Amino acid sequence: MLTGGLLALLGGAVALTLVITSAAGPDQAGPLMATPTSTPTPTVTSPANPADTAPATVEPSIPAIPPPANLPVVNYDAAPGGFPADPDPMSTVRLREGLHPTAKVGAYDAPGGRPRAFLAPTLAGVPLTVPIVERKSGWAAVLLPSANRTVAWVPPGNWKTVPLRDQLVVERKTFRLTWLRDDKPVQTWRTTLGTRATPTPLGRTFVLGRSDLGDNVYADTDVFALGAVPDDPDAVPSGLRGAHIGLHTWYNDDTLGKNVTDGCIRITKSGQRKLLEEIIPGTSLVVVDKLPAPTPGPLTAG
């Protein structure tokens, strides 16, 4: 594991300082459990007209304005303003690719638009991978770290893609977290979520990294720090200002099915340890009130 910078996470009652680590970097996908599929037999058909054989139209690339050197670098603090809203924040469609900067890259408000900040290869000392939500003219729109329901546009160059097979979906009304791999449900756990004053933020976010706290309150189990932050920073205790939303376990399961946290998502110890084995940075997590259809499968007991 790679030890990174010091981070703050929303805890139960006190502010905590975290050392974030990365279990699997951009080139490590972790354990895989793919279901074998048969290879379709190719078929050959005659085109209906000559236009069917024409090459696909390539969308012209939009040039990027060179970003000023004095722009801020996105870090664990609140992200700079001026970025656009996520075009589909409540979508539960899996985000299949992440973007990992290989050098400092400009983050823009639109393809060919105004540069607002930089994304660096690491954030708080760990490799940064942000999910791609849209592509246009060679540019990629990614979920912006340290902000809620916000994207940044990144021009071509100085980044590579990371395949993302997993997705986490949290339902606030039913207190359920479902882990999906390749769009198929794997396991579901009961959760503890934020209070009315400090609700778990709705919308798409992602796993930023993990941290080894070495603390009994977290059942001596690593926590995930997410890209999301409290919707109302002033509503959380003053000692937690600047903290991120976390996904973690707790020293007991007494509060499962209740709204008692400062916005974090708690699951069982065995559930958290399973996700720590399987989930890589950049994996998307979407919080909804309730899915249109019931989550498949029963709740996992432990």
Rank of each mutant, 00 (worst) to 15 (best):
L2I: 15
T3L: 14
L6F: 14
A13M: 11
A13Y: 14
T21V: 15
G25P: 01
A34C: 10
T35M: 12
P36S: 11
T43I: 12
V44H: 07
N49A: 13
D52M: 12
I62Q: 02
N70A: 14
P72E: 10
D77K: 13
A78V: 14
F83P: 02
A85D: 12
M90A: 15
S91A: 13
S91G: 13
S91F: 08
R96Y: 14
H100I: 05
P101T: 09
P101W: 05
Y108H: 04
G113E: 04
R114K: 11
T122R: 11
G125F: 05
V133T: 11
R135W: 07
A141C: 09
L144C: 02
R149G: 09
P156R: 08
T161S: 04
V169L: 10
V169E: 07
V170N: 05
R172C: 11
W179G: 00
W179M: 03
D183Q: 15
G194Y: 06
P199M: 12
L202H: 03
V207R: 00
G214P: 05
D215V: 14
V217R: 03
F224T: 03
G227C: 08
A228C: 12
P233G: 11
P237I: 00
G246N: 00
N252L: 12
T255N: 07
K258V: 07
V260E: 08
V260D: 06
D262R: 05
K269A: 06
S270A: 15
Q272D: 08
K274T: 01
T283K: 00
D289E: 15
K290Y: 10
P296K: 06
P296A: 10
P298E: 09
L299H: 06
T300V: 00
